[in-house]
Every structure is written in structure tokens, then in C-alpha cells.
Computed example of a mutant assay.
Amino acid sequence: MMKKSQINIDKADIKAFLGPGSQFEGKLSFDEMVRLDGRFVGEIHSADTLVVGDTAEVEGDIHVGCLVLSGNFKGNIVARQRVELRAPANVQGTIQTPELKIEEKVMFNGEILMASDVKASNGETS
């Protein structure tokens, strides 16, 4: 059973996967849960959940419903519902979300903006 305090990232729910050693540059959009464990540079847009594994290196802008991040990230994050930073995450940038969870041993350097209503499409709060 899923705890309310954590996003469930069951492997059966993941619809696309960029594995370790893979590299992708560009724009990514998706409708169901996606996991990145490789290197990604660019923009990511979705109303669903993005999982960034501990071997991942992501640089760019992320606009999603929920984000679970364990890898290296540099850029801007806008999450409509929630962001979870799980060890050994290393994050440099801005996070905008109504709900944020940061585990021990996570490295975060940046700015956190919290509002009750975040619009993932353009990063504006209302």
C-alpha cells in the first residue's frame, strides 16, 4: 500500500525508460509515468510523474505533475502537485511546487517557490 507521504513509483506503472548510458537532447512530452536514468538535456513537459533515477544527469526545464528525483539536476523545476528529492540527489536551480519533500543527504543549491496552485505549463502561480 502506498504511503501518502511518498509517490508510488512501481515499475509496472512506468511507460517509458531512458536507461543508464543513454543520452537524449531535445523536448520530451508524455502522458504517463516516465523514468530517466541516462543523460537528458532539454525540456520536459507532462501532467504526470517523472522519475529521475540516481544515475541520471538532467539539465534544462521540467514542467510536470509530480517529480521524484534521485540523480543530478541543473535547471528549473515546476511541479503542479509535488516534488520529492531522494538521496543521493544533487540539485542546482529553482523548484516551484505546492508540496516538497527533501530526504537527508540530498544536496540542494537554489531557490524554492511554494504556492498552493502551480501551473505546470508556464510556471506561473495563481
Rank of each mutant, 00 (worst) to 15 (best):
I112E: 07
A115Q: 15
K3R: 15
I7L: 09
V34H: 05
N72W: 13
N109Y: 14
I9H: 10
G60K: 01
E111R: 15
G21N: 06
G26T: 02
V68M: 02
M107H: 05
V83L: 00
V34T: 04
A87E: 11
H45I: 11
R82A: 03
V64S: 02
G38T: 04
K27S: 09
V78A: 03
Q81R: 13
V91I: 06
T94R: 09
P88F: 00
V78K: 01
V64C: 04
S29A: 13
N109T: 14
I9F: 10
G65Q: 03
E124Q: 15
N109W: 12
K4W: 12
V91D: 01
K101L: 14
A120N: 12
L100Q: 07
S121G: 11
T94D: 07
V91A: 01
R35I: 10
I95V: 06
I44S: 02
R35G: 03
T94I: 10
G60A: 04
E32V: 10
I102K: 05
A120Y: 14
F40R: 01
F73T: 01
H45E: 13
E43R: 09
T94Q: 14
E57V: 13
I44L: 03
G21L: 08
V106W: 02
A12W: 14
S70E: 12
Q92F: 14
L50A: 04
M114S: 14
E103D: 06
G71R: 02
L18D: 02
E124C: 08
V34P: 01
S5C: 08
Q96V: 15
A87Y: 10
C66L: 14
G38P: 08
K15D: 06
V34Q: 06
F30M: 09
I77Q: 04
V34F: 11
P98N: 05
N90K: 15
S116L: 12
A87F: 07
V78E: 00
K74T: 06
D117S: 11
T125M: 08
I7Y: 05
G93P: 03
